[in-house]
Every structure is written in structure tokens, then in C-alpha cells.
């Protein structure tokens, strides 16, 4: 156990926990877009900046990547922090101008306009990497990845073609903070447009609704730690 101070209040934390995690657990809100408690921290969106005092040094750091250390003093709302965070949001906005979560943050933080514009075609992706980490760490499918670097960096399946490892679970779609990923079921086929993936859906033996990609069933059989009972997938959740 280590002791640290966040916004004047003392907290205990496990060694290895990050500052953002401890703050959120204790009801201290720090805006964040690329952090998820079940995924490894990545420090991609830079929104979770806080001021950290360690010994004689005070500096800004992303709280999701900063480990809790004995005696750490953290401030989440100094003028420096707020100014830096507003700048980060200004930089993110042009990448996904329509995203409701970004717009809400902008309202909260009093960002009314951005001084920046995107040279690239806007694809509403802020390169936060949540989808990639969810797919690799939670699902274990490893269907998508970052490619390129610098301004050419983007998320895509290998070779920019159909994501052959994608099982259509929708975890990435669910977690994406900008809502730029879409999943649609139509005529027994599930489509994930950004991953160029189409998957055939299995029909429920009772109501006939085509509800689950065959690929997901196959994946659960092969990779699932405790595979579901025989016949589990015959019925959709409504008919089970």
C-alpha cells in the first residue's frame, strides 16, 4: 500500500495502480477518453493530464499512465492543468468534430472553438487505440491494429483489407469514444464497415431471428476458457 494526496485528500492505493484509476474509484472526476479499467493504459488521448508533485519536482503528466507512489501529491484542477487540457481538447476536436462525447467535454471545459484544423480527411477517429486494445486484450481476436506513424497513423485490419480475425463481437464499436465505428445486422449478415468485415449470422432455433455470427460461436468453442454448454448457442438470449 502507498499513500498519496489527490486534491488535498489523502488516499491509499495498491502499488501498481495508476493515478487515474484511484481518482475515479474515489469519485474524483478526471476527463479521459482512452482509458478503460479492464485494458492496459495507453496514454493516447492526453486528456487526463494532472499536476504531479514528486519530491521537489512538479510537472504535468497523464494520470492514466502515472503509477501511484508513496508521497505523491496530485492536483487535478490547477489553472495549468485546465489550460493544458483545453488545448488537448482543441487538438482532438478537428479529428472528430461531430462526436457527442467530445462536444460534451468541450461544453464542460468551456472550449467554444478550436484553433486547429485537420489536413486529412476527417474519419472521426481520434487514434485513442481503445478498439485495438479491446480486441486484443478483452476479446483476444487481434483483428485490427494501428498502422503507419505520425499523421499517417490510423486504425485498420492488416493490409487495410477485410479483418479476417474479426468475430463480430462488437466490443470495439461499444467502446469507441467518438462513435465512429458501426455495426449493422441485415438479412442475416452482420457488417462492420470500418473493418470491411461481413459475417453470416446463425438463426435462433426457436424464434428464427438470425442473431449471432457463426465466427463468434466457433471462436468461443476454440478459444473460450470455459466453453459454453453444448446447445447454448441454439437459442437467442430472448428464447434461452
Amino acid at each position: 500500500m502507498v499513500h498519496l494526496v489527490i486534491d488535498g485528500k489523502g488516499f491509499q492505493a495498491e502499488e501498481g495502480q495508476n493515478v487515474l484509476e484511484v481518482a475515479l474509484e474515489n469519485g474524483i472526476e478526471i476527463p479521459h477518453l482512452c482509458y478503460h479499467e479492464q485494458l492496459s493504459p495507453y496514454g493516447g488521448c492526453r486528456l487526463c493530464l494532472v499536476e504531479i508533485t514528486r519530491g521537489a519536482r512538479t510537472f504535468l503528466s497523464t494520470s492514466c499512465t502515472y503509477p501511484c507512489l508513496e508521497g505523491l501529491v496530485v492536483r487535478t484542477d490547477t489553472p495549468d492543468v485546465l489550460r493544458a487540457r483545453r488545448l488537448v481538447l482543441e487538438l482532438l476536436m478537428p479529428l472528430a468534430p461531430e462526436a457527442p462525447r467530445l462536444q460534451a467535454l468541450a461544453r464542460q471545459m468551456g472550449v467554444t472553438e478550436t484553433r486547429f484544423a485537420s489536413d486529412e480527411e476527417v474519419d472521426d477517429c481520434i487514434r485513442c487505440g481503445l478498439c485495438i486494445r479491446a480486441c486484443a486484450e478483452l476479446v483476444g481476436a487481434e483483428a485490427i491494429t494501428f498502422s503507419g506513424r505520425g499523421e499517417r497513423r490510423k486504425v485498420e485490419p492488416p493490409f487495410g483489407e477485410e479483418a479476417l480475425n474479426c468475430i463480430g463481437c462488437g466490443a470495439c464499436v461499444f467502446l469507441c469514444p467518438t462513435g465512429c465505428l458501426h455495426m449493422e445486422d441485415q438479412d442475416g449478415v452482420r457488417t462492420l464497415d470500418k473493418w470491411k468485415r461481413t459475417l453470416s449470422l446463425k438463426a435462433c432455433a426457436s424464434c428464427g431471428r438470425r442473431y449471432l455470427p457463426f465466427a463468434q460461436i466457433e471462436f468461443a468453442r476454440q478459444k473460450g476458457e470455459d466453453p459454453p454448454a453444448e446447445g447454448w448457442f441454439e437459442f437467442c438470449p430472448d428464447c434461452r
Binding site: E142, I144, T145, G148, R149, P158, F159
Partner: peptide, 25 residues
């Protein structure tokens, strides 16, 4: 080549996504 990355991915049990990431980075 794509074949090279695919072969290595299977041979070393490294996901193709990771090799593609390196190759483009």
C-alpha cells in the same frame, strides 16, 4: 511481402496485426 508476413505470423505465432503494425511503423 504479404506472404512473408503471413508465413512469419503462423511460424512464430505472432498475430498478423502486430507484424503489419511494425511493417508500417
Amino acid at each position: 511481402s504479404r506472404e512473408t508476413l503471413q508465413y512469419l505470423s503462423e511460424r512464430l505465432a505472432v498475430p498478423l496485426t502486430r507484424l503489419y503494425h511494425m511493417a508500417t511503423f
